[in-house]
Design a protein around this nucleic acid. Structure first.
Length: 227
DNA sequence: CCCTGATTCGC
DNA sequence: GCGAATCAGG
C-alpha cells in the first residue's frame, strides 16, 4: 500500500491528535504499526513520549513540585476545552487517582535525592540524630491537587462508539466512513468469537448460494468497485 | 504476556 | 523510501 498524499495527511493529523501508531495503522488499513512509526519519523513528525527514552532523575522535577507547578507532561494529556460540561464523578475520581500517583512519585524522588546527599551530623545520647539549625524547615506542604479535566468528544459524538473504545467484546461494524465527522462503530455486544454483533455478523458472513439459484444483484449505488 | 515508540538495516 | 525485526520500558 503506497503512501499517497491523502494517506500521509491522515497520518499527520492522527499522529498530531495523539492516536497511537497501532490505532493509526488500523484506521489507515494496509499498513503495520511499524510502517506508521517509520513514516512518521521520515516525515519529521514530532517525537512522542517513548517508553525507551532515557530517564531524568534530576532535581528539576522536585523543584517543580515544590513550587506548586504541575509538570507539563502531566497536564498536557488533559487539555481542557473550556466549553465542555462538568465531568462525571467517575471521571474526576480517575483524574484524582492519577494526581495522587504522581504525587507519590514526586515524594519518592525527593527522598532519593535527600538520601543521596552526604550527611554530616552528630549523634546525640541514645542514638538520636541531631538536626542542625539550617535543617529546620516547615514540613513540605504537598501541592494541592490540580483539577484536571479529560478532553471529551463533542456532543455530536455522544452515545457513539469511537475508535478508541473498541475492544474484542463489542461490535466493530463501522457506521459511516473514516474521516467523516460522525464516523463511529456499532458498539453493540459482539457475537462471542466474532468481531461483530449478531446482526452485523449476518451482514458480514453469508452462506454461498449456488450460482444458478442466485438473482442478479441490484446495481451498486456507488457504481461498483473502481478499476 | 500485552502494550508503547525508536532504531536499524536489508530491500 | 519503506517497513519488518528488534530493542527496551511500562
Amino acid at each position: 500500500m503506497a503512501w499517497t498524499d491523502e494517506r500521509i495527511d491522515q497520518l499527520k493529523t492522527m499522529w498530531e491528535k495523539g492516536l497511537t501508531a497501532s490505532q493509526i495503522a488500523e484506521e489507515l488499513g494496509g499498513v503495520s504499526r511499524n510502517a506508521v512509526i517509520g513514516k512518521a519519523h521520515r516525515l519529521g513528525l514530532q517525537a512522542r513520549p517513548s517508553p525507551v527514552k532515557e530517564k531524568d532523575t534530576k532535581a528539576p522535577v522536585v523543584a517543580d513540585i515544590q513550587s506548586g507547578e504541575t509538570p507539563d507532561a502531566l497536564a498536557a494529556p488533559f487539555a481542557t476545552d473550556s466549553n465542555e460540561a462538568e465531568p462525571s464523578p467517575a471521571e474526576i475520581a480517575a483524574v484524582e487517582d492519577e494526581a495522587e500517583e504522581a504525587e507519590e512519585d514526586a515524594n519518592e524522588t525527593a527522598a532519593e535525592v535527600r538520601a543521596a546527599q552526604p550527611q554530616f551530623r552528630s549523634i546525640g545520647p541514645g542514638g538520636f540524630v541531631r538536626q542542625t539549625p539550617g535543617e529546620q524547615q516547615p514540613p513540605a506542604t504537598p501541592a494541592p491537587p490540580r483539577r484536571l479535566v479529560p478532553a471529551r468528544p463533542g456532543a455530536d459524538m455522544a452515545g457513539k462508539t469511537s475508535l478508541l473504545e473498541l475492544n474484542d467484546r463489542i461490535c466493530k461494524w463501522p457506521i459511516g466512513h473514516p474521516g467523516e465527522p460522525d464516523f463511529h462503530f456499532c458498539g453493540e455486544p459482539a457475537n462471542p468469537g466474532f468481531p461483530y454483533c449478531v446482526d452485523h455478523c449476518s451482514s458480514a458472513y453469508q452462506a454461498q448460494i449456488p450460482r444458478r439459484d442466485r438473482r442478479a444483484p441490484p446495481p451498486l449505488p456507488f457504481g461498483g468497485p473502481r478499476r
